[in-house]
Amino acid sequence: MLELNRFAITRIVAIPAALDMLAVAADSIVLRTAPDEVMVLPAADIAVDDAHAIVVAENSWSGVWLETAELAHILLHHCEWQLPAVRPAFAQGAIADIPAKLWLETDRALLLIPSPYVTEFNTNLSHGSGL
């Protein structure tokens, strides 16, 4: 059972060029989830060079920091795609059948999933292995 908590995130949709040049605090984590979208955590006021940027304070993602070994164990049984080799790195895809985001650092990783799926995610982790 993973203790997943809501994370305060700033989500931005803007033209890709504006996101390429996004200025964020040095200790912020920027997840480029799509060419026109980023998730920045922790949440912050961020200037975006796009008059029509959509900037949303977001708390509907729940996450947990994991030790590398913990993550490896989860991925061994619940993830069929391969992680990037470099660190830090961002990766996203299904983990235990739930759309997940991974921020990979050298010795730890942040796992984020949509808050509406927290219960199902834990259920899947616990018995996604035949009945």
């Binding site: 235990a96 808050s115 995610f121």
Partner: peptide
């Protein structure tokens, strides 16, 4: 069938914050 089913999940049905 039990072995083949290993690694499958039930449909994951999301819950609202009011669940």
């Amino acid at each position: 069938i039990g072995e083949i089913a290993a690694g499958a999940y039930h449909f994951s049905t999301p819950r609202t914050a009011l669940d």
